[in-house]
Nucleic acid binder design. Sequence first.
DNA 1: CAGGATCTGATACAACCGTATCACCAGTCT
DNA 2: AGACTGGTGATACGGTTGTATCAGATCCTG
Lengths: 209, 209
Amino acid sequence: MSTRVDHEQRRAQIAEALLRIADTQGLQAASMRVVAAEAGVSLRLVQYYFHTKDELLMDALARLSAQLQVRMQKWIAAAGSPPNPRSIVTAILSSILPTDAESRRITRTYAAYYTLVLSEPRLAEQHGTTYPDMLESFLAKQIRAARQSGDVSAERDPELTAAGLLAMTNGLGSSVLGGQRSGEAALAVLSHHLDELFGPAAATDLSPR
Amino acid sequence: MSTRVDHEQRRAQIAEALLRIADTQGLQAASMRVVAAEAGVSLRLVQYYFHTKDELLMDALARLSAQLQVRMQKWIAAAGSPPNPRSIVTAILSSILPTDAESRRITRTYAAYYTLVLSEPRLAEQHGTTYPDMLESFLAKQIRAARQSGDVSAERDPELTAAGLLAMTNGLGSSVLGGQRSGEAALAVLSHHLDELFGPAAATDLSPR
DNA sequence: CAGGATCTGATACAACCGTATCACCAGTCT
DNA sequence: AGACTGGTGATACGGTTGTATCAGATCCTG
C-alpha cells in the first residue's frame, strides 16, 4: 500500500487546472493536453489518474461544488450574530452573486458546465442534482420562520418566494457574467427585493470577516 | 444579378439547421459537416454561403433573436384588450419562459450560445447586446406607469423591480432547462411574484390566440 | 454563340481530439 | 536477490475539426 506520491493531491492538482481553464477559456478549450500543460504534468499522468475525460470532468465538478459550499458556509457563519432569517437569506444569496474574484470564478466555471449538462443530461444524475433543491427548501424554511415571527407578510408563499429569489439571483449572476451589469448593480437589485420582502429595516452588512 | 437560387432562402435553410442542432445536441455538436447533413446540402454549399463558421454562427444567432422578438410581439398583442401594464409585463415574461415547445426550443438554443459568448466576449459586441437592456427599460416603463396609476406600491423602484423580474424569469428558465422543475411550476413562481407586485387582482390569462 | 459569372461536387490538408500501447525506472515485499 | 507493482515518459492510432483547392456544371449577358 505504498505510494511514492499522494494520489489525492495529484488528482486535485489536475482537477484544479481543469477548473482554471474552464473559468478563463471555457470547457471546450479544456482538452486533456491543455489540462496537462496547465497542471505542469505530462499527458500520460492525466490519463493515469483519470482513466477517461468524463471521469476528470466529474471529479472537477465535484470539487467545484464543494468549493461553493465552503464559501456559502463561510458567508452564513459571518452573517451576524445572532443569525436571523433575513441575514441568513441575504448571506446565501449574496455569496452566489459574482461580486468578488472568487465568486466570479466559481460562477463562471459553473456556467461552463451548464451547457454541458444541457446536452448530456446523464451527467446531472451522476452529480448531486439534488443540491439546488436542498438549498431552495432551506431558503423556504428561513422565510417561513420569518413569516411566523411577523417579519414577512403572511401573503407570501415560502416555497414560491424562495424559488423566485434563488432564480433571480442566478439570473442576475448570468447578466453579470454576460457583462450586462456590474456585480454591485446586481447586488443592488437583490437588496431592493430583500428590503421589500422583509421590512424596510436594518442595514445590510455583507461579506465575511 | 441573376441567381439560380434564392440566396437568402438558402442561408436561412442552413442557419435553421444549425439552430436545430444547437437545440437538440448543443452547439459543440454543430460542426460544418453535421450542419450540412441536417440541412440536406453538401459541405461545400455551407462554405459557399458562409465563408467561415463564425459567420454562420452569427447569422444563426441573429435569426434566433428575431424569432424571439416575433414571439414576444405575438404574446404582447394577445395580452388582452385594452392592454394594461400588468398584462403586458405578464405576457413578456411568460413568453420567455420555456413552457411550450417553441419557447423551450428558443431558450435552449440561447443557452447553447451563452457559454460561447462567455468564452468569446467579442461575439457579444458584434451581436445586439443592447437588446436585453431595451427590454429591461421597457419593463421598467410599464411598472412606472402602473405605479402612477396606483396599481403598484410607490416603494418599488421601477428599474430595480424590472431588472429583478427579468433576472428571475431567466433563472427560472434555466432551472426548467436543467430539469429541476417543470415549465408550469416555473410559471407558478412567476405568477406568485406578479400577484404580489400588482394587486392580488384578476385572473392570469396567458398564451396567444 | 462565346464568355464569364454563379453555383455545386469531390477531395485534400494540417491540426487537434481522446485513448491506447510499449518501454522503462524506482521502490517494496517475499 | 529477484519478481512484482506503482508511477512515468514517448509516441502512435483512428477520427473529426475548419478550411482550401481543383474541377465541372449551369445560366445570364453581350
